[in-house]
Amino acid sequence: MTDAQTEALSVVVEREIPYPPEKIWRALTQPHLIEDWLMKNDFKPVVDHRFNFRADWGAVDCQVMAVEPNKTLSYTWAAYGLESVVTWTLIPTNAGTRLRMEQSGFRPDQQQAYQGAKGGWQRFFAALEQVLARVE
């Protein structure tokens, strides 16, 4: 029997964004801003807070696991049999912030969810950058 953890797949998106971590943190944690680039939600940056993301295709059930303002945010992401964890890491750089998102926990038999997430997060990142460009 193999260890499922070693076989689990992750989607990683990493970008250098020309804004300070504080500004990006707001876009990752304020519900009205999250809605602009990701989905409708009832998010609060509080450990153990249960919330969901809602879209026309359905909902994602989540629970906050870790909050370190302007540095790290992690929450579970469960939908359609997928039990995963999304972790955001913000690292200040000379030009702004290196923003890294990792969604881990895709099983090898969840190729459709995995491929969907790979494409989806690229779109979400593009939308996030548009939100950051227009908010103060």
Rank of each mutant, 00 (worst) to 15 (best):
N52V: 03
M39T: 02
R54N: 08
W121P: 00
S104P: 11
V64A: 12
V131S: 09
G105M: 13
L132F: 09
K23A: 05
L128C: 07
W77P: 01
W88D: 05
R98N: 15
V47G: 09
L132C: 02
V60N: 04
D61C: 02
F125H: 05
K118L: 12
D36A: 15
Q130H: 14
Q122E: 10
V12N: 04
W25E: 05
Q111V: 14
E22Y: 04
N70E: 15
E22A: 08
R123P: 07
A78I: 04
D109P: 08
D109M: 09
G81H: 02
A113P: 07
Q30A: 07
N41W: 05
V47W: 09
A8Q: 03
D109W: 10
Y75M: 09
V11Y: 03
D48E: 11
T93M: 08
Q30H: 11
F51K: 00
D36V: 02
R54I: 14
R123L: 13
V11S: 06
S84E: 03
T72Y: 09
W37K: 10
A8S: 03
S74E: 13
V135I: 15
G120A: 01
A133L: 08
T6I: 13
A55D: 04
L99R: 10
L82F: 09
V13N: 07
A79H: 11
R107Y: 11
R98T: 13
R26D: 05
Y19Q: 08
W77K: 05
W25G: 00
R54L: 12
R50N: 13
A117S: 14
L9S: 12
I91Q: 15
V47E: 14
T89Y: 12
P21S: 11
V135K: 04
Q122C: 08
H49S: 11
W121I: 00
R123C: 12
E35R: 13
K23N: 05
F124L: 10
M101D: 13
P20H: 11
P45N: 03
P92S: 15
T76S: 07
